[in-house]
């Protein structure tokens, strides 16, 4: 009984849709208010990055269940320009677009697991997980 939601990101309105989908699933999974907000905020960052840097992409939100552990996984993928220096992008204060420059590192701190794969000219995939 795996639950999956997919949100296609084309503009800033879609960021809100992705957020709502994430919050709903977080609530259903049984996360408390603080964790719901952490997850929703992380999804907001990732989906905004998609439309800011790649134009389009998608966010896949999935409920996880592993042995006794329950959780959520979010995959944000695009075929945008890719990030030339992932290490640097994960440092505080890095941002090529005017944001607080905390988007990616902030997202990482909000979640339990964070993986990023990026190739210049191919695209970027960020996978984040949070366990209950």
């Amino acid at each position: 009984m795996e639950k999956i939601k997919e949100v296609v990101i084309n503009n800033s309105e879609d960021v809100i849709l992705a957020r709502q989908a994430a919050r709903e699933m977080a609530r259903e999974t049984g996360f408390g208010l603080a964790d719901q907000t952490r997850i929703t905020t992380a999804v907001s960052e990732l989906s905004r990055n998609i439309y800011l840097y790649a134009g389009t992409g998608r966010v896949i939100i999935r409920a996880l269940s592993k042995n006794l552990k329950k959780g959520m996984e979010i995959v944000a993928e695009d075929r945008g320009p890719g990030i030339p220096d992932v290490e640097m992008a994960l440092q505080n204060g890095y941002s090529t677009n005017r944001s607080l420059g905390q988007g990616l590192p902030g997202t990482k701190r909000l979640m339990d697991e964070f993986e990023i794969k990026s190739e210049v000219g191919v695209g970027t995939t960020v996978t984040i997980r949070k366990w209950l």
Binding site: L33, A34, T37, R38, N92, Q102, G106, T107, R109
Partner: peptide, 15 residues
């Protein structure tokens, strides 16, 4: 600012 938002802002390091 709600508690959960204050927590999130703090953890993200947003000032």
């Amino acid at each position: 600012i709600r508690p959960e938002i204050a927590i999130t802002l703090q953890e993200m390091g947003l000032e």
